[in-house]
Design a protein around this nucleic acid. Sequence first.
DNA 1: GTCTATAGGCAGATAGAC
DNA 2: GTCTATCTGCCTATAGAC
Lengths: 182, 182
Amino acid sequence: MRGFNGFSYADVAGELDITTASLHYHYRGKAELGKALIDRYGERFAEALDAIYARPAGALPKLRAYADLYAGVMDEERMCLCGMLAAEYRTLPEPMQDAVVTFFDANEAWLDRVLREGRKRGELTFSGSPREVARALISALEGALLTSRPYADPDRFRATAREMIKRLASPAPRRAPAAPRR
Amino acid sequence: MRGFNGFSYADVAGELDITTASLHYHYRGKAELGKALIDRYGERFAEALDAIYARPAGALPKLRAYADLYAGVMDEERMCLCGMLAAEYRTLPEPMQDAVVTFFDANEAWLDRVLREGRKRGELTFSGSPREVARALISALEGALLTSRPYADPDRFRATAREMIKRLASPAPRRAPAAPRR
DNA sequence: GTCTATAGGCAGATAGAC
DNA sequence: GTCTATCTGCCTATAGAC
């Protein structure tokens, strides 16, 4: 993927072995085509999130599975579509901007739920609001995808992601936030 | 900033109130212009890092100052130049790709040093290698810039960054990794 | 150093035949 | 639905006068 400003109608048409005129029959313009691509991406991602949530597993395995989703994206396309589009957000037509925001909001809501439930059950320990932690986690994973892009090594992303999740939602090694003893 | 594919020679020339032909006198082509922009950005960033390192402060304040650098970038341009270019890395001419990598490597090296020294002096506590943590920190901050782009609120970035640094390099609240007592 | 003029290419988009 | 042909506009880049 090359971003909205980095791909052309001809690129997509060529991939489908049709002409740009034919592509125009299906999508009025580039903005509409772009929005459709985001929506499809968002739907697939949402399905994957549902599948993870349905598993009979704890919060921490779910978070790890969430990170693995990103790793899978990286293997296939080397970057999350919406992460890339966020970079050129200001140049996007409005319908595409809205679709990008929708994607991030959905991720945040899903993580918020997992984090909230995980803390309630005592599986996770973190200070601050679940929403803040959810945003931090999304930021960290998107950022890890972004910064590992220039480096061919996929392990670079995996190592960073592992580092993140360990710190963001580590199972409580201790109980009470008692006063430090020396 | 709109990225490499999102700005034109005419944009830059217009900003300088000259013509594109004049701009060509100074920079042979768009690739050379782009590389010069990255280099200038990298130099300024490096100067800021030197200034932070020279301060008579501990590792943690230095890390906070590092995060503030990103916050400053966000206020001015809403995105780190190299973070944005990393998203469209594959479409960049080679000299620009190299310049982007140089930027990230320099950041990593600086953080690695601060983290290493901070741990040695007992100011920071983290498991794993300083290099891994450095990468995680860069990822987190770049990602926070990226994902807060669609949301006008600058506090969104600040809150996420604070959340990160608290977790990434928190001063040890306790000493020994003793067995959990119940 | 900066300009006007212009080349040459590729972009997104449309008309109309099949 | 897909095609050919074509339009218009913007892009990077160059030539050559001042």
